[in-house]
Amino acid sequence: MSCEKAESLLHGYLDGELDAVRAVEFERHARGCPDCTRELDAQQSLRARLRDADLYAPAPPSLRRNIRERLEPRPDEGAASAPRPGRWRWLAAAAVVTLLATVPWLAFRETRQGTSEGTLAAAALDAHLRSLQLGHLTDVVSTDAHTVKPWFEGKLSYAPPVVDLAAEGFPLIGGRLDVLEGRTIAALVYARRKHVVSVFVWPAENAPETAPRSSVRQGYAWIHWSHAGMRYWVVSDVAPAELEQLARLLRR
């Protein structure tokens, strides 16, 4: 392969968009070519800089609120033009209580696993929102998995797997104890850009392994699965595809 040809394939290689044959051809050329190796390194470091620079511009709360207000069913009569309390994610605890009281969780019953999925989805979202509202994201604040994991020792009857995924764009923030369905479990907290992701982990207790299943509601996404003896529920307000990416990383 010529350098021109390699150069034309380099970006597809970098982006994981080459088919296997061309990727192997590119690698073979790059191994023996200092110029192409240097260019690949340069492009990889440019990409790392872009990714680490926190350039993503998520929607500000005011935009969410405006969209939300346009989506709310109109009140039947009267206060049509009065400002409605936004039931959006950043608002006060009172608003969250309103949200949880009014979300029709019945919708989840359509899912294959019946009511338990809907109940858990509600409980997990509830726990996630509670931690945001009370400013109680973490009991142990650390980006180091080796600090977070031992912290759970003695507080739980099991050892939750703890991994840092900073290199993959999900830095670990810390962990906390939370309660789901009456039992105390581990909640790991990851960041995704400016967003918080709660990962609830508890023993699967002989339940079969299940593939990730995801859903969204009211601007929140969640995904859950069972893997290696543990059940995972992940809740956040990031896009569902990003939770799917996180699920893949946690299942590695």
Partner: peptide, 27 residues
């Protein structure tokens, strides 16, 4: 719409912000 489209509001804002190079115009 809420289930399929609204979760991508961040993406919408992000793209607008970088195309327009302005926070307020992006919003």
């Amino acid at each position: 719409f809420e289930q399929l489209v609204v979760p991508h509001l961040d993406s919408a804002h992000n793209l607008a912000r970088w195309l327009l190079r302005s926070e307020s115009d992006a919003q």
